[in-house]
Amino acid sequence: MRIPCPLCGERDSKEFSILGDATVKRPDPDGPDAAGEFFDYVYLRDNPAGTHCELWFHEAGCRQWLVVTRNTLTHEVAGAELSAGRKAKKR
């Protein structure tokens, strides 16, 4: 499986480590239901059979965390972008 790293180009998946669901967002620790939201954040991650947004860390490459869009049924990789860049764009 090859991951199109935005900085390094297409690289073999073995250069990466994988964290999983990239859609989660760390909750406000001072929010009214912080405990519940943190439980959700830490334990209830997306696990779809199909398109999945997930965090891959190019550990043996540029050390960038990527958001990779990949199909969990076919392993087809639709694309990857820098996690940091993505967040910056949203701001």
Partner: peptide
Amino acid sequence: AVGVMRHLEHATQVIWPD
């Protein structure tokens, strides 16, 4: 050593990219 580095990169790139 490896895990902490990954953890810090996660913190700065994913959780708090600002």
